[in-house]
Nucleic acid binder design. Structure first.
Lengths: 153, 153
DNA sequence: ATTAAATACATGTATATACACATAAATATA
DNA sequence: TATATTTATGTGTATATACATGTATTTAAT
């Protein structure tokens, strides 16, 4: 295990709360890096994978760009542009909605489903191997993280 | 408080551990957004601020690019480029080391110090207002996050 | 029915991430 | 000493973030 102190070569924190904030930021980077490394084998970025997973959640129903955007972990993600890359790789298809011509409807292709399934399989395996906390600790962690965001509107 | 379920409009998680991973990623994004919003008033990005703080930690000693890089929270940050922006704004100064001509030595300017102090003051205030967990919870959170990264080399 | 406002998406710009590669200088090796 | 390797930094490219703006379409208001 690498403690935060070693990771960012800092020992003096203003408070335990400030250390926790840095710890959250560092842990998120660590998790993303871990996933991205695996996803690279499939030619996917972390964010492209996230969009594919969101689409899978509604499959075989389609989703419009807005629906995808509000399910993204990073809310400021530029979903149209991420879909651009996925479309080039023929993992999704874009069509204009017949009901509301402003909406672009995104559909997972068979290739998209196949790639998502293969990569998800590996990702889950890697994450299970790398993150070994037990269910109780995870539950406690979820509780505390939501406490951190208590001021969120 | 906004629970993760509402934030990413998802209710079915594979496990409490998977939920915790998403919770870490979302919380990190939330914290970064909160800080960036304030830093914008000072014309700084989150990453530029991080570099300035690292430099402050050694002040009045100087630091080379590599030393800054290994203290960054996001290890894949391109430090030379971040320093480019800081240099343009005259917040830091670049000089080539006399001892090792490969090294670029970075120095905080008076303007850099002033801007850092002003922005740190506000950031600390905002973070104290927004993140209201107590010291014990923070300690517990730090413990759990390091448990998450137990597999880190 | 016409106009105004809101909505959905695309596009543009600056900065950052992630990573490969280039360059110059220092160190190790033959 | 000459060469090879390593190290420190800079540069290039593709993608993403953060945010502003543009455009078409729908909805609401007059």
């Amino acid at each position: 295990m690498v403690k935060l102190e070693q990771a960012i070569q800092s020992t003096k924190f203003k408070s335990e709360v400030q250390k926790a904030m840095l710890n959250i930021l560092y842990s998120a980077w660590w998790l993303k890096t871990l996933m991205s490394k695996e996803l690279k084998e499939y030619g996917l970025t972390h964010e492209q994978y996230n969009v594919l997973r969101i689409l899978k959640g509604k499959y075989p129903d389609q989703m419009c760009v807005r629906d995808i955007a509000c399910r993204m972990i990073e809310k400021s993600s530029n979903v149209p542009r991420i879909i651009d890359r996925l479309e080039i790789k023929k993992l999704v298809k874009r069509t204009t909605s017949a009901i509301d011509k402003r909406e672009t409807v995104i559909t997972l292709t068979q290739g998209g489903i196949a790639l998502l399934e293969a990569s998800t399989h590996i990702i889950n395996k890697i994450m299970e191997e790398s993150v070994t906390i037990d269910q109780q600790d995870a539950q406690q962690l979820n509780l505390l993280l939501e406490k951190v965001r208590v001021g969120e509107e």
